[in-house]
Design a protein around this nucleic acid. Structure first.
Lengths: 209, 209, 209, 209
DNA sequence: TATGAATGAGGGTTCATTCAT
DNA sequence: TATGAATGAACCCTCATTCAT
């Protein structure tokens, strides 16, 4: 390995770490003040860099926001996987619990960013809007498919999966919001227990059997 | 009554009607372009008044937005009334259906404004945030109380009313969002039917009994 | 005439006069420092107005420059009229002298602006470039046509009017530059006499008959 | 000669060739996009060097531009030599034709750079301005002297050599501009023929003898 | 000598709000 | 009360130059 390689590897590492630092600063700033009230000045102050440096790493304020958003949505989307209905697989309900707990853990870990997602996801910018719309759209579709499946397999009762899907989505979003907006860590600590209850609500509803 | 009074009554009437016209223009503008992309220029153009006149009626762009929001939230809040559990009252479920249909009718009628509420009411401003927080807080409380009641009366099964309440809230909010954001009027026309399904979801959940 | 009319007439006058004042300040600033080194800050300082006010009257720095340029080019173009060759018209050469003196008077009166035209006409901006190209193009065409005419009428000798035209244009431009760039007023005072000599050069060349 | 010398000679040669490469890249960039729209980034990209390297060879963007300009002006100035009026020398007119063709050949060869000279050498910077002023000043002086000479020797008629000189200069500059700005190579191919016509214009003017 | 990441002054433009008429 | 011209703070982004490696 030539010294040149060593240099460029090191440089590239440094670049990457600085990029992350800026993203981190931006995440913090956006989470604290929201998109519109966050200025590039806030981000660079947080990252301890000069104005111009910011633009070496990101095209614009909008671009860095979109990247943060993408990051979160990608992670969330990745954590959404189907339930295994093969024979010998764990019971469906247990799997669901697993899924839900996993996704909510992610949300809690990214609380700052999710706060942005929840707080001002919409109306910022055409790109952001589209990305979010896509995300929620595919999430809705995923849920609907799952419900269709459940119906076909006889787990679920006869209902309009379209409507049921957005009810489920609604409970999830509301749960995320509660998790993310609550100042104290009360909820965050009980994510798993709460997730079980939300799941239970979705499955059994309110009424006495 | 002196002629002076007549004048001032007339003046006051005129003032009130102009105020309403401005609010109306603002509602349209905010609904169409969102808070941040709506400029005072849009509002006064819509209202057919001069720049300065706007400030004779409203303190600021923020203030008029807050007033529109207040208006909507007040109406919504007013439409939230408890279920009558006295003997001889209509069956609880029927009453619930009534309530839900009424509130959703309101939402559909104020589609433009509700769109703002759903899209970007949050993160704009401390005042707005507080107001919204209050609204959702009291709504949540109302739901929780209702659930407690239902539990006590034996309608509902044993569950954490705190969690159940925000699940219910989540389904409502999501429903509102669907109603308000969909371009076509497909959903809006079927509000009543859909409301029944949402209610059904909340009551019975997904599972086959 | 209603008071309203009076008001709006007055307002409109004021607007016009302020517009002119800004144009004047811009003219001065551009002439002194050139396009690129003139900042909107210079113009508004010269005009004694606030930053935003500038944008009430002009779309951009570029726009005001283009307007100044248009003004000058229009005036110059207007002063370029053909020679009358009807019977009974004054001798052609006398008419030419007239035309030249008129146009140069214009240049001297607009010295500041013409300085910009001469100094940095090109390379600023696509719009400006196009406008200038058009102007010089039509001027060249005008000269060529005149020369063709002269040839046909037997005044002028056989020569390539294309080449001759840009030679003539060259002497004019150079003359304008001399007029406009000289610090002292020596040249400006003798415009008429000099114009005669330039004309003479163009007509008779350098050689002894 | 010590080995050290050899090294430094080689180093110095390398330095010189790199310097030239940068100049060449700058020439291309300036010619294509003009001074203001050419960024240091364009130059270093063209030269294939790093940002910092540029500043090892040139003090600033402005400095490299001035150097290119100097280069051109020096070459042009060198090609301006007097007419030989000794007995036995070729006829004056033939010599003039020679000179003109030589200088225009130079212009055509340096089309890219001359384009800069013509388009925006002026108004960029005090240094550049001064240099250009000097150049044109000495050119004007040269022409005037030549004309004085011609007058004294009886070739030329009585005229104000000051005025005549800038007329001649004007035709030359305009010719250069035509050569340099025309997109197609039509003109460039006919330089010699055109030069003759320009010369003819200067000597004989427009009128029928 | 070569590199290229970092710098930061600077400029054009927007828009909510004010104020003289 | 109504007007709308005027205000100026605010903010994003560029790019020539520097400097640590």
């Amino acid at each position: 390995m030539s010294p040149n390689d060593g240099r460029s590897v090191r440089a590239s590492k440094k670049r990457e770490s600085r990029r992350k630092a800026i993203l981190q600063a931006a995440r913090r700033a956006f989470a604290e003040k929201g998109y519109h009230h966050t200025h590039v000045a806030d981000i660079i102050a947080g990252a301890g860099i000069a104005r111009g440096t910011f633009y070496l790493y990101f095209e614009s304020k909008n671009a860095i926001f979109l990247e943060l958003l993408d990051q979160l949505l990608d992670e969330l989307q990745a954590s959404i996987v189907g339930v295994d209905t093969e024979e010998g697989a764990p019971p469906v309900e247990a799997q669901l619990v697993d899924r839900v707990q996993q996704i909510l853990g992610l949300v809690v870990q990214n609380r700052a960013l999710t706060r942005i997602l929840v707080r001002e996801a919409v109306g910022l910018d055409a790109d952001v809007d589209r990305r979010l719309h896509e995300f929620y759209g595919s999430l809705l579709e995923y849920i609907r498919d799952a419900l269709e499946n459940g119906k076909r397999m006889g787990f679920l009762r006869e209902l309009d999966t379209e409507v049921a899907a957005f009810c489920v989505l609604g409970t999830i979003k509301q749960f995320m919001e509660q998790l993310v907006m609550s100042e104290d860590d009360h909820l965050a600590e009980n994510v798993d227990r709460l997730a079980l209850q939300v799941l239970d609500f979705n499955l059994r509803g309110l009424l006495k059997s």
